[in-house]
Design a protein around this nucleic acid. Sequence first.
DNA 1: TGAAGTTATGAATACGTAAACATTGTAAAT
DNA 2: ATTTACAATGTTTACGTATTCATAACTTCA
Lengths: 334, 334
Amino acid sequence: MVSSKDVAKLAGVSQATVSRVLNTPDLVKKPTLEKVQRAINDLNYIPNAQARSLVQNKSRTIALLSGPLHNPFFVDTTTAIVNYASQMDYRIQVQFVNDHKLNDAYTIALEHKVDGIILSCILNDDPIFEKLKRMNVPFITYNRKHQNNEYFVEIDNYEAGYLSAKHMIDQGHELIAWVGGPQNFSTFYHRFQGFSQALKDERIGLKPEYIFNTDTTSTDISASFHQLMNLKNPPSAICAGSDSLALNVMDNAISMGLEVPKDVSIIGIDNVDLSSHGSIQLTTVGSISGRNLGHLAIQKLIDMIENKNNSCVKITEPVKIFPRSTTSQKVKQT
Amino acid sequence: MVSSKDVAKLAGVSQATVSRVLNTPDLVKKPTLEKVQRAINDLNYIPNAQARSLVQNKSRTIALLSGPLHNPFFVDTTTAIVNYASQMDYRIQVQFVNDHKLNDAYTIALEHKVDGIILSCILNDDPIFEKLKRMNVPFITYNRKHQNNEYFVEIDNYEAGYLSAKHMIDQGHELIAWVGGPQNFSTFYHRFQGFSQALKDERIGLKPEYIFNTDTTSTDISASFHQLMNLKNPPSAICAGSDSLALNVMDNAISMGLEVPKDVSIIGIDNVDLSSHGSIQLTTVGSISGRNLGHLAIQKLIDMIENKNNSCVKITEPVKIFPRSTTSQKVKQT
DNA sequence: TGAAGTTATGAATACGTAAACATTGTAAAT
DNA sequence: ATTTACAATGTTTACGTATTCATAACTTCA
């Protein structure tokens, strides 16, 4: 492979001068500059970023530990994160993380001496949180947060759950089910808390047979949905813990021959881009500002990296309902 | 940062022995092994992958130059690529590439001494193709291919276009429009060729006012669709150059108050995962085997990297129609 | 017992770059 | 003309690892 030494030899200068041509061209005289640049072109020289990282002790690389892209939330965030990073001249190393392989993912990131880590997949009480703090590598979580309440960007999950239930109640529904996810994810936990509180405030009972906290796999969602609809009093409305869950529930409803919202109203949370597609029109709860959580997070992370800014990031975006076509007024049964 | 030297000092051995413990533990005596491992744990030592790459001259990193994720095709392929690579212990560096920033993307990849490049975004006559060959870095294109007909994985695009038109004709449609993309993408070019040939074979005229090769932006698609539907004889069927385009067209149709397929039939190409969602049910053309192009491509690429396998990859997957709910029999106008 | 072979370890080097330090050249100021 | 300052370049070192080569310790077998 052609190195800066080869360039130096061809140009008749020292390797240091080649380095200067690349990094601080103002410090090098015009004739030498041109000589070196000519040599660079002639040899098709491409500097080795790895070697540079080694000596500079920074890689301009950020590890992204994302959830899977079949969840449209991560489609939006991944796009925002990769694009903003590219624009700021950072590389993104992605991994799609199943929760039980978290530790491998962190290790891989750390081995590669990334300048920072941006991650979604963290549990409330994840021991990795303390580990990352000790490692002294800048990191931030988006969407989910750790119980320590540090370095996160989220939406107001409690309020989102609350509004979601409230919306259904306002539409006249009384048989309202919850299809959520694991309670050791901060998102699902607080969303469910909000949901519960809304029912309580409106004096609607929280029936255990209406509550499903799935593992977010489509088989589990499917099973939950079928159990729900086979109750003797099936719900007329379903609050889903996320848009991804809501879309999955919709898919199940339709393939069961049910009409949404006529037979069952469905609402999600997150307001993912896909939810507004004409064929989907999912009613949902999302950030008022419309700002992408991934974008906010990567911005903050790069700021932390570059400005050694240690002020702890804690962002909670306020939310509102985005009414679309998957929820409707409950018609009284005759 | 703690290095293998620090570990060596603490364990009372040489740095070489630490390296051996990590890479060839069978060559080191049990007591020393344990001493070193204890030191590694005590110091929380994490090997530096960059330094390793430098000396070994391989990074176990692959650059992925993908199209944007708002195109659901790339959602499917990116998932497959990242996951397979992770499984094979390779890291993926993603970039989402706008076509006019191609060269930057390649340069960035090469600077990082990636072991290979997997890319979709190549033009028929892209000069980068020769450059990559000269660089001697393994690469493969998925979806699109270069006119050189080397190192690609694609579906049978011509046949896909042909079947797409044929399907509409079989349904009784005669006013069939095409909404495609740039003709210097191999995909759109061959799909359009197939489409044209089908019309010709069935003695249906190819009216220029029914042909739109967009730049794939939603504004252009929107404009094209409106032009189409404002013709005095608007088409009863639209063949879209890809599922992404088809979904975009559907979205436009619905927001114009049209019903699909009652008012207009729509068919895509690619059979992306999203197309089978209950609320969408997009009729489309896709690989018979159902194998993901990204998966095929990354498999081949890693094989090339590891086995120095120089046999040129040329894969064209056969296709078939996946009939769903966005196309229907043309009802004769009264 | 000792030579030959084998196993375990250490010492030295290379990878490609940036940066600290040293040296030379050149121009300005006296 | 001589000093002084600074601009331009070269020399050397460091980053953290894997690897080659050298050496020491230990077996084996006659």
